[in-house]
Simulated assay, not measured.
Amino acid sequence: MRRLGELEATVMDVLWRGSEPMLVREVLQEIAKERDLAYTTVMTVLDNLYRKEWVVREMEGRAYRYRAITSREESTAQALRDVLDSASDPESVLLHFAQSVSEEESDILSRALRRKQRKR
């Protein structure tokens, strides 16, 4: 999975926060609360995200509605998977990561691993 540029990440944040597929102007309205961008810039970014398979779109009238293909959590998990897959020593990466987690995060991981073991 390709990494997102700064503007792509901003647009994806808007889509992930939204509960419904969004028009370009709706995405722009959300972004305009913090920065000034042209409509065509947002439209280009959404088109790029579509080509990169981060979003899907459906025609509504003469405009597209866009939505994220995966949730923020799924995308983040895939990014972690990509890091492990590209590491020359994934065990070492996991061990370093395990040392950095909080007690609450450690509990979450432990519960998830126990559930995984029970499914086998």
Results as ranks from 00 to 15, higher is better:
residue 2 R to V: 06
residue 5 G to Y: 07
residue 5 G to S: 14
residue 6 E to D: 11
residue 6 E to W: 11
residue 7 L to F: 10
residue 10 T to S: 09
residue 10 T to Y: 00
residue 11 V to S: 04
residue 11 V to F: 05
residue 16 W to H: 06
residue 16 W to N: 04
residue 17 R to Y: 07
residue 17 R to E: 12
residue 18 G to V: 02
residue 18 G to W: 04
residue 19 S to L: 12
residue 22 M to N: 05
residue 23 L to Y: 14
residue 24 V to Q: 04
residue 26 E to N: 04
residue 27 V to R: 03
residue 28 L to W: 07
residue 29 Q to Y: 09
residue 29 Q to D: 14
residue 30 E to C: 09
residue 30 E to L: 13
residue 30 E to T: 10
residue 30 E to I: 04
residue 32 A to R: 15
residue 34 E to Q: 12
residue 37 L to G: 04
residue 38 A to C: 07
residue 38 A to H: 13
residue 39 Y to P: 05
residue 41 T to R: 13
residue 42 V to N: 05
residue 44 T to I: 08
residue 45 V to K: 09
residue 48 N to M: 14
residue 49 L to A: 01
residue 49 L to Q: 02
residue 50 Y to I: 07
residue 53 E to C: 04
residue 53 E to P: 00
residue 55 V to R: 03
residue 57 R to W: 05
residue 58 E to G: 04
residue 58 E to R: 11
residue 58 E to V: 02
residue 59 M to R: 14
residue 60 E to D: 12
residue 61 G to V: 03
residue 62 R to H: 03
residue 65 R to Q: 03
residue 65 R to M: 02
residue 65 R to F: 01
residue 66 Y to V: 00
residue 67 R to D: 02
residue 68 A to G: 08
residue 69 I to C: 00
residue 70 T to D: 06
residue 71 S to T: 10
residue 73 E to P: 00
residue 73 E to N: 03
residue 78 Q to E: 10
residue 78 Q to F: 08
residue 80 L to G: 08
residue 82 D to I: 06
residue 82 D to N: 03
residue 85 D to P: 00
residue 85 D to A: 11
residue 86 S to H: 10
residue 88 S to V: 09
residue 89 D to Y: 13
residue 90 P to L: 11
residue 92 S to H: 13
residue 93 V to E: 03
residue 95 L to Q: 02
residue 97 F to I: 06
residue 100 S to Q: 14
residue 100 S to I: 02
residue 102 S to W: 00
residue 102 S to M: 02
residue 103 E to V: 15
residue 105 E to F: 07
residue 105 E to W: 10
residue 106 S to K: 15
residue 109 L to K: 13
residue 109 L to H: 11
residue 110 S to N: 15
residue 112 A to H: 13
residue 114 R to Y: 15
residue 114 R to L: 15
residue 116 K to F: 14
residue 117 Q to H: 11
residue 117 Q to W: 11
residue 118 R to L: 11
residue 119 K to Q: 14
residue 119 K to H: 14
residue 120 R to T: 08
residue 120 R to K: 15
